[in-house]
Design a protein around this nucleic acid. Structure first.
Lengths: 235, 235
DNA sequence: CTGACAATATTGTTCGACAATCCGGCCACC
DNA sequence: GGTGGCCGGATTGTCGAACAATATTGTCAG
C-alpha cells in the first residue's frame, strides 16, 4: 500500500531509483503525510541520520526539490518546506491556469488512443467515489492520481517536466482543512465537469472547464484568512 | 562586457553567487558562446579541472541545470547538453505558447507602473536596431534581454521560476543558422507587434500576438530538415 | 533593556576513497 | 569473417571526514 503510494507520487521512473531520488521521495512523502509541516526547516545532518545517506546526497536531493519548488533554499540558512504567501499562491494559480488548461486539452485530444479512456475513467470514478464515502484523507491521493493520469495521457514531456505535481500537493497541503463544505462540493463538481469533457474528447470544453476550475480556486483561496498564508518576503 | 552578459543570462540573483551557481553560469554561457555544442557530453573531471571547483560542486550544478532542462542527466553516463528531437521541440513550443502568452499579458497589464514602459521600450528598440545593422550575433543577447525585461515586468515569481530562459537560449542555439531570410524578417515583425501591444497596455492583443508568434515558430520549425533535430529516444 | 562580543550550530566547499556501471578492445569460437 | 563473451580502463555514484564561512544563540557589561 505504501509502496503503491510511492509509485504514485513519482511515476514513470523505470525500475532504477538513485539515492538522491529516494531522498526526494522521502521528503515529498513526508510532506504529504504531514511528517513535515509547512515552513519547517530541514537540517542536513538530521536527514543524513534519518535516511542513512551521505550529506552530498542530501544536498543533491535538496537542490532538486528546490528546483521543483518544494523547498526554498536560503544561503547559509538551509532548506525550508516552501509555504506560499498570498501573492505567491495567486501567482502560482495564474500559471497553473494555463498549464492545466493545456494539459486538459491535450488529454482530451489523446483520450481515444490506447487504453487512455479506460485509465482516465478509473481515476475519475475514484474521485467521484470519495464524495460519498471517505473524508479528506484519501482525496489527496486520488486527486494526485487524477492529475498524474491526465498528464500521462498528454504525452508532452515538457509539460510533465515543468508541471510540478509537487506544487499541487503543496497547495493542497498548505490549505487543507480550511475549505468550507460548500467549497469542497464545488470542487467535486468541477472535477466531474473536467473529466466528462476530457472523456468526450471535447478539447475546447475540457480546457475551458479546467481553466475555470483554477480561476475559481483562486477566488476561493482569496477568501481564506490571512493566517493561511506565509508572511510576505521583503524584496 | 562579459560581466554584463553574465548578469543578463541569470538576472535578479542579488549580489551573492554561490559556487555551484557560478558553474551553472559558466556552462550556460559556454553553450551560448558555442564553447559546448549541442549533445556534447560534460565530463565531471573536466569541469572540476577547468573551473577549479570540487566534484561535489559540479554535481550540484549539473543537478540544477538538469532541472532547468539545459542538460540531460543519464544514469552512469553523465550529463549531455540537451538537444531536442522534433517531437520534444514541438512539445516545448506547445507549453511555451501559453506561458509566453501569459507573460505578455501580464507585462501589458503592468506596463504603466514605475519605469516599466521606459525599460521595455529600450529592449524593443535594441531588437529593432539589429534589423538593419548587426548580423545574427547580437540577436541572441537582445532577444534574451527582451524576454528578461518582459518577465521582470510581469512580477510573477512563479513564471520567472518555471519559464526557463535557458530553454529559449537552447532553442535558438540548436536551430541558429537554419532560418531563412524570410523567416528572420517575419520574426522581427512579430516581435515588433508583440512589443507594440505590450507598450500600449493592450493585454488581449499582447497575449494573442505572442501566442501567434510561438505558433508560427512551431510551423517554421516543422519545416526544418531532419538533420536539425536530435534522434528520437526509444521509450 | 540594549548593544557588543564570544560560543555554538549549520551550511558551503574541498579532498580522497571505493563500489557500481559503462564502454571499447581483445580474443576464442563458430 | 563475423559473433559473442571477457577484461580492463574510464566515469559516475556514494560515502566519510575535514575545514572555512556564515548565521544563530547566549552572555555580559553598560
Amino acid at each position: 500500500m505504501i509502496a503503491m503510494n510511492t509509485t504514485l507520487s513519482r511515476a514513470n521512473k523505470a525500475t532504477v531509483t538513485s539515492t538522491p531520488d529516494m531522498v526526494v521521495n522521502a521528503i515529498t512523502e513526508g510532506i504529504m503525510k504531514r511528517r513535515y509541516s509547512i515552513g519547517q526547516r530541514l537540517v542536513e545532518s538530521d536527514l543524513t541520520r534519518d535516511l542513512k545517506v551521505s550529506r552530498g546526497t542530501v544536498r543533491e536531493a535538496l537542490k532538486t526539490l528546490s528546483a521543483e519548488g518544494v523547498v526554498k533554499l536560503t544561503p547559509h540558512r538551509g532548506a525550508f518546506i516552501r509555504s506560499l504567501s498570498r501573492k505567491e499562491a495567486h501567482d502560482l494559480l495564474v500559471v497553473l491556469e494555463v498549464l492545466c488548461g493545456v494539459a486538459a486539452r491535450l488529454a482530451a485530444e489523446h483520450i481515444k488512443q490506447g487504453d487512455n479512456h479506460k485509465r482516465f475513467k478509473v481515476a475519475q470514478q475514484a474521485i467521484a467515489g470519495l464524495r460519498s464515502g471517505g473524508g479528506v484523507s484519501g482525496f489527496a491521493e486520488e486527486r494526485a492520481r487524477f492529475y498524474q493520469t491526465m498528464l500521462n495521457i498528454c504525452r508532452n514531456a515538457e509539460l510533465e517536466r515543468i508541471m510540478p505535481l509537487a506544487h499541487i500537493f503543496m497547495f493542497r497541503t498548505q490549505f487543507q482543512g480550511l475549505w468550507s463544505k460548500r467549497d469542497i462540493a464545488a470542487v467535486f463538481k468541477e472535477y466531474q465537469d473536467i473529466a466528462t469533457a476530457i472523456l468526450m474528447g471535447d478539447t475546447k470544453l475540457a480546457e475551458s472547464h479546467m481553466r475555470r476550475h483554477i480561476r475559481k480556486t483562486d477566488v476561493r483561496m482569496s477568501k481564506l484568512p490571512e493566517s493561511a498564508f506565509a508572511i510576505e518576503e521583503d524584496r
